[in-house]
Design a protein around this nucleic acid. Structure first.
Lengths: 202, 202, 202, 202
DNA sequence: TGTTAACCGAGACGGTACGTCACGTCTTCGA
DNA sequence: TCGAAGACGTGACGTACCGTCTCGGTTAACA
């Protein structure tokens, strides 16, 4: 509806070539070894065409990553089978699997460290992940309504407890990202925010 | 007795000057804008003297950071007042405060992102943090013995659940690092690994 | 019409600044102590701009020297008063005087030793001196026609006999480069290639 | 009688190793690419041992070259068969042949350009060649006495006329150094300084 | 014959310059 | 008239050597 507006003059062909080249090069060489010049050369584009539309290498790679996830765009609802524990395990296992994919790793690792240093890029990144975060919160709220999670739970904290350990292990490579580990995290967090003892349980 | 061995020929004066210069420059300019040349110039040292002893900028900054913490060397035991919750809150609040210190932030942020990209540096970093990790585990074990933590708790996972959310908020600046937040994390993790119901609690 | 063609993109301003800086620095410091970096700095130019267009310091200095002599470009005819001996003495005395000029000495000495080591540069140098060599041969030929030089004389050898001793004295500083010395050489070479005894001389 | 005196402490073994290494490296790599460090390494010697005894790379190579010619030491008399022209041709042909030897070329070319830039080295070089020069002058004097050369000839100029063209061709590679060329030079110089018409020649 | 000082190898040191790479800006030219 | 092509000034890279300066370990003169 709105986003592909951009400038009327802008060459869509060049834009795609740049994003593709950026993504490929990051996967091939790792984020740090990719230069704007290399992206321009690979894309068959002048350097100025990159500088005209993006402020930094991080911004290009960020958009390249976002372009990937825009295919799976509309449907951001997480699975809701009624079993919160099962659903969360599914999601967290999927996240762990994503981190294990070398191509995804190269892209997202470079982007993450860039985000850690560049507040402006961090803002764009936050905006990008906001919808996904909200979807996760929704699933937790649904679990609260179903009596599977404490109604007092701070959902942001709960999400951080689920995601941050995975992220930490991945970023610093301090441990394996197995399905078991994902399950362990989900179980621990659910224990941390237990629903009130049910009256009907007698 | 052992660690200050190094090479007999090495100039301790130059080594200190380099580490000091590196630390100062990272705090002043931020990790990314510090160059080996600038470190060498500030330290009054030839570039080769840096390249001779360190493989990368990351390694220099890493050692500069380590040199800082080597003052508080021997005593790595965490507080153990008998109250696990209070002790953990103390430690986690201190960690949060550390992250809030701009000088520490600049140093450790650059180092962290470097560690994320350089497995060799990661290994050195892991070795450096191993003792602290073990001290934390010891405190949890002590809590288990005191009946304040589940004897079945996976202590590594417990530690990750305590530390990783703090780390994640700090690195990506996704939320404030308050004492309250530290307390919240401690409470959640203790709930996640509750001791068995005591018979004497009647 | 042709020579200032070069690349359409090339900055003439930078080119001139580089050649001027090179010439000045060689005269000030001597060829050996001049560095590409110093030329670039003096010229207010990036090092890459030098490396882009010249393969070596020698090539830069060579072009700087050539640029000097391109002012006195078109007229390469040597004096031809009809008196070969007088004309040659004039030329050789001028050459000796040139060698005695400190600025010329510094430039040409460095260039000469570079030419001695770099065959590629030597080729460029040979091409540059070819026209002057030909002009000298022409003057000798004119002398032969005038009956002032043996018609059988190998003109290249004659030129070498005139020029090489001067060059040798200059390069290795084995003797003074006086006008008398120039005259002595001319007289000796003319004796070495005497015209046939004139029939009209009786 | 005197030269192997040196310092009592000096290691003759190191001295020889350094001169040999220097000579080998110049032949292998060319003068310009040889460094003091490489000589020290090849010789299995500390850098300081070189700097202790020689002021410059040029001085080392100079002594290496001199050490070569010290084998053929005592006998510096040139051939004197009574036929000046034949004797000079022999000598000049030998000189041309020497220049054509690649090992000699590499050594002497580097040394020559160094001499051209370093007056102190030039003095040492001049001293070294003085005896040979004198021997050449002696042969010319002998030729004068034998009525094969003008008694008024300036012998230094005559020698320069013989040697300089060869040297010039060799240094700048402007022509072939053939036996014919050597002969041509000798003949020309003898024509330039003819003996007085003999009264007995009628 | 034992002492001791110069010389030795080794190589770290503060430096300078190398030649290359990439930065981000600016200019030219062809489609 | 836009964009590819790429030259420009800048600055950092990591390497090679410079000439100086310790280090211990021989080693040879002399006490």
């Amino acid at each position: 509806m709105s986003s592909p507006q951009r400038s009327s003059r802008r060459s869509e062909r060049s834009r795609r070539a740049i994003l593709d080249a950026a993504r490929e090069l990051v996967v091939e060489l790792g984020y740090a070894k990719v230069s704007i010049e290399a992206i321009a050369t690979r894309a068959g584009v002048g350097k100025q065409t990159i500088y005209r539309w993006w402020p930094s290498k991080g911004a290009v790679v960020f958009e390249a990553v976002r372009a990937l996830s825009e295919n799976t765009d509309g449907e951001l609802a997480l699975p809701d089978t009624g079993d919160l524990e099962a659903d969360l395990k599914l999601v967290l296992r999927a996240t762990a699997a994503e981190f294990a994919d070398p191509a995804f790793d190269a892209l997202i690792r470079g982007l993450t460290t860039e985000v850690a240093h560049d507040p402006e890029l961090a803002a764009a990144y936050a905006e990008h992940t906001a919808r996904l975060e909200e979807a996760k919160r929704q699933r937790l709220r649904s679990g609260q309504r179903a009596g599977q999670l404490s109604p007092d739970a701070d959902l942001d904290v709960a999400l951080e407890l689920l995601y941050a350990p995975l992220f930490h292990r991945w970023l610093l490579r301090t441990g394996p990202l197995t399905a078991d580990y994902a399950d362990t995290l989900v179980e621990a967090v659910l224990r941390a925010f237990p629903p009130p003892a049910s009256v009907t349980a007698s």
